[in-house]
Amino acid sequence: MVNDKDRGDPTSSYPRYREIKRFILDGVKSGQLKAGDRVPSEAELTVQFAVSRMTANRALRELTATGLLVRRAGSGTFIAHSKPIGHLIEIRNIADEIRTRGHSYRSRVVLNETVAADRSSAARLNVRVGTRLFHSLIAHHEAEFPLQLEDRFVLAAAAPGYAKVDFTVTTPNEYLTRVAPLEKVEHCVVARMPDEDIRGILGMQRGEPVLVMTRRTWSGGRLVSHAILTHPANRYELTATFEVAPD
Score class of each variant (00 low, 15 high):
Lys184Cys: 09
Glu97Thr: 11
Asp118Thr: 15
Gly200Glu: 12
Tyr105Asn: 02
Phe78His: 05
Lys34Gly: 08
Glu150Ser: 14
Gly161Asn: 12
Met204Leu: 14
Met204Ser: 13
Val179Met: 08
Ser219Val: 13
Val127Ala: 07
Asp37Ile: 02
Leu202Arg: 05
Ala157Tyr: 05
Ala59Tyr: 09
Arg235Phe: 03
Ala227Gly: 08
Phe145Gly: 00
Arg58Gly: 00
Leu182Asn: 01
Gly36Ala: 09
Ala43Leu: 12
Leu238Arg: 11
Pro160Glu: 10
Val110Met: 15
Arg38Cys: 03
Arg152Asn: 02
Gly67Leu: 03
Met213Glu: 07
Ala65Arg: 03
Ser107Thr: 01
Asp6Gln: 07
Pro181Ile: 01
Pro40Thr: 08
Arg106Glu: 03
Thr55Val: 13
Pro246Thr: 08
Arg128Leu: 09
Val165Asp: 00
Thr171Val: 09
Gly130Thr: 05
Leu69Asp: 05
Arg106Ala: 05
Ser75Arg: 08
Glu113Leu: 11
Phe134Arg: 01
Arg22Gln: 05
Thr64Arg: 09
Leu229Lys: 09
Leu223Pro: 10
Ala245Gln: 08
Pro15Phe: 06
Ala122Cys: 04
Val51Tyr: 06
Arg22Asn: 00
Gly207Glu: 09
Pro40Asp: 06
Arg61Ala: 08
Ile94Val: 14
Gln48Pro: 04
Glu97Gln: 11
Met54Gln: 14
Thr239Lys: 11
His81Ile: 00
Thr171Leu: 08
Pro146Arg: 00
His226Asn: 10
Ser121Glu: 06
Glu19Val: 03
Thr77Pro: 02
Asn126Asp: 13
Val179Glu: 04
Ala65Phe: 11
Arg235Ala: 14
Arg92Gln: 12
Gly200Trp: 04
Gly203Asn: 06
Phe242Lys: 11
Tyr175Pro: 06
Asp247Phe: 04
Ser30His: 11
Pro84Asp: 09
Gly161Asp: 11
Asn3Cys: 07
Arg72Gly: 02
Val28Arg: 10
Val212His: 07
Met193Phe: 06
Ile198Leu: 14
Arg72His: 09
Arg22Leu: 08
Ala65Leu: 00
Leu182Ala: 01
Arg222Val: 15
Ala139Lys: 00
Ile85Met: 06
Ile98His: 07
Val154Tyr: 10
Val28Pro: 10
Val210Gln: 05
Phe78Trp: 04
Pro194Asp: 07
Val210Ile: 10
Ala56Asn: 02
Arg216Leu: 13
Ser107Arg: 04
Glu208Lys: 06
Leu238Tyr: 11
Asn173Tyr: 11
Ala157Leu: 12
Gly8Tyr: 00
Ile20Ser: 01
Ile138Ala: 10
Leu229Phe: 04
His226Phe: 15
Tyr105Arg: 01
Arg106Cys: 02
Met1Gly: 15
Ile20Met: 04
Gly220His: 13
Phe134Trp: 05
Val70Ala: 01
Met1Ile: 01
Met54Pro: 00
Glu183Arg: 08
Asn234Arg: 02
Phe153Ile: 04
Val39Lys: 00
Leu137Met: 14
Glu62Val: 14
Arg222Thr: 15
Val127Asp: 08
Ala95Glu: 03
Arg53Ser: 15
Pro246Lys: 10
Phe23Thr: 02
Thr55Trp: 00
Ile79Val: 15
Asp151Arg: 05
Gly31Phe: 11
